[in-house]
Amino acid sequence: MGARLGGRATLVQFSSAFCAPCRATRRILAEVAGMVPGVTHVEIDAEAHLELVRRLDIVRTPTVLVLDADGREVRRAAGQPRTADVIAALGEAVGVRSGAS
């Protein structure tokens, strides 16, 4: 994707310009990434990266992918997430990493 992954997990958000839920999702993900050390939030403009959108089968915005430290997709959700769900998904991403060691 061309972005640096977080040391523990990465929140990847696919957005589009006129998507109101995308703005709210951006705020939620940035807030969570700021609270959890080693977590990065990356926002991707779906319209500008259509090949990636097709390859990852992104069908609506916002779509959020939760990646573990190795960049593997752990969880995916479409629509505006709740903060608690994002935190739970991060726990899963970090758990996958620590469970593998």
Rank of each mutant, 00 (worst) to 15 (best):
C22K: 04
C22I: 06
C22W: 07
C22N: 08
C22V: 07
R23E: 05
R23G: 02
R23I: 06
R23T: 07
R23Y: 03
R23P: 01
R23L: 04
A24R: 13
A24P: 03
A24Y: 07
A24T: 13
T25G: 04
T25V: 07
T25W: 08
T25N: 05
T25S: 07
R26T: 11
R26W: 07
R27H: 10
R27Q: 14
R27C: 06
R27P: 05
R27D: 14
I28G: 00
I28F: 01
L29E: 10
L29T: 10
L29Q: 09
A30T: 14
A30W: 09
A30M: 13
A30P: 04
A30N: 14
E31R: 15
E31C: 08
E31A: 15
E31V: 07
E31N: 14
V32C: 10
V32F: 11
A33Q: 12
A33C: 13
A33T: 12
A33F: 14
A33D: 10
A33L: 13
G34E: 13
G34M: 13
G34C: 12
M35E: 15
M35L: 15
M35D: 15
V36W: 14
V36E: 14
V36C: 15
V36K: 05
V36R: 09
V36F: 14
V36Q: 10
V36A: 12
P37F: 11
P37W: 11
P37Q: 12
P37E: 15
P37H: 09
G38S: 12
G38H: 05
G38E: 13
V39P: 00
V39G: 00
V39D: 00
V39H: 00
V39M: 01
T40F: 08
T40P: 03
H41I: 09
V42S: 01
V42Q: 03
V42P: 06
V42D: 01
V42E: 02
E43G: 04
E43A: 10
E43M: 08
E43C: 06
E43K: 08
I44C: 01
I44A: 00
I44Y: 00
I44G: 00
I44R: 00
I44K: 00
I44E: 01
I44F: 01
D45T: 03
D45M: 05
D45C: 04
D45I: 04
A46T: 04
A46D: 01
E47I: 06
E47C: 02
E47S: 09
E47P: 02
E47Y: 09
A48H: 04
H49G: 02
H49M: 06
H49P: 05
H49I: 04
H49Y: 07
L50I: 08
L50A: 06
L50M: 15
E51K: 11
E51N: 09
E51L: 13
L52R: 04
L52Q: 04
L52H: 01
V53F: 02
V53C: 02
V53W: 00
V53Y: 01
V53S: 00
V53P: 03
V53D: 01
R54N: 11
R54D: 09
R54L: 11
R54G: 06
R55F: 07
L56W: 10
L56R: 10
L56D: 03
L56H: 03
D57K: 13
D57Q: 14
D57E: 15
D57S: 14
